[in-house]
Nucleic acid binder design. Structure first.
Lengths: 191, 191
DNA sequence: CGATTCTTTGAAAACAGTCAATCTGTGTGG
DNA sequence: CCACACAGATTGACTGTTTTCAAAGAATCG
């Protein structure tokens, strides 16, 4: 699975053989099965994680037992709980797999080392952060501006591929809409 | 007003006299009055901007003329439309002042130059980006998980100082709640 | 002041959520 | 390969929250 990360990196930045080896040397390959947890609320998250294959979700569970999904992470996406990672605080979130998945974990210190040793890697990381931030801004915008129907339509339009890998009730949990409402939107779209 | 930015920077990183001068040399000081626009939807945003004094808001206006507020930026905060800035695309947002304000603008290219020339400045920028991202994640979480009342309470708790500088209808526009609903929440808090 | 902006109110309507039951499809173990 | 269990989706009736609209009342500012 290391090769998937390598391909991803090769597509974004130029790395020497030595740098690639350095990255490999700190990469922990891991397979997890559907519904298996990577992080449970209360634990401290220690890694930067990359999805080689599969689909990961980050979510919270409220006191009524309802899930609220912070993020979906498919292949070639990084994930983790940044807040817990950076502040060394117990996470408010859970992370588990929606599909059987193969991921790479890089320990916080190792990841920092990579950023320090490999300037282009560091740039990539910052670029990704920039993009993540823009995506999250646009999600906020949708969230405060749109009706349930528009939120759902917007999700389908923005994530056409992802949408048919994710059960409807999870899309709901991501958008803040109940699955029943989504059913009704689908049955009875306005116009 | 340059001194405010200098103070802010001095508090976060160590800068040589020369570096400070470099920053000064590309800083454009600007005063804007309440309700004055810095950016209108459709224009391309060209700067990184820092608030020395006052309060800035970034918002969209939908087809019904309703405002949706993306961000409030008080003193010592950076603002701008990152998406428009980075992609050189017309902004979907407007930026104006809630209070008479004093700000510093740094042109995109100059800002990149600063990041390139001053490593500690670059680090600071990335740290801020990290933090902005975490804040926006937590706003997303609130937005998909909480009732109107909890959103409002959470806003007051998270922004006790800001809250009494911002008219209620703008807090509503930030949270995705009508001002009437906020009035009712205040009149009739549950427990 | 006078004008503007902001907040509050009430009544009605729209929207989305809840609950419980049923239906559907899928995957797994025997 | 079938049967069963289970997860997911749909339905309908109902409830509750939030919005809408219009009007009136505060508060603020020049």
């Amino acid at each position: 699975m290391l090769s998937i990360l390598q391909e991803y990196l090769a597509d974004k930045i130029v790395l020497s053989e030595k740098e690639l080896l350095l990255i490999d040397s700190v990469s922990i390959v891991k397979k997890i099965r559907k519904k298996q947890f990577l992080l449970e609320a209360g634990e401290v998250w220690k890694y930067n994680a990359f999805v080689c294959k599969g689909l990961i979700k980050t979510f919270s569970v409220d006191k009524d037992g309802k899930e609220h999904i912070i993020n979906f992470s498919p292949e070639n996406y990084w994930f983790g709980d940044r807040e817990s990672l950076i502040n060394n605080t117990p996470s408010k979130f859970n992370i588990d797999a929606i599909e059987n998945s193969e991921i790479i974990l890089i320990k916080k210190e190792d990841f920092q080392m990579l950023c320090h040793e490999i300037p282009s890697f560091n740039n990539l990381v910052n670029t990704i952060l920039q993009k993540s931030f823009m995506v999250s801004q646009s999600r906020i915008h949708a969230s405060i501006s749109f009706s349930a129907e528009k939120k759902y339509q917007n999700f389908l339009d923005s994530n056409p591929v992802l949408a048919n890998r994710i059960p409807q009730h999870m899309i709901g949990a991501y958008l803040g809409i109940t699955p029943e409402t989504i059913t009704r939107i689908r049955r009875n779209p306005k116009k």
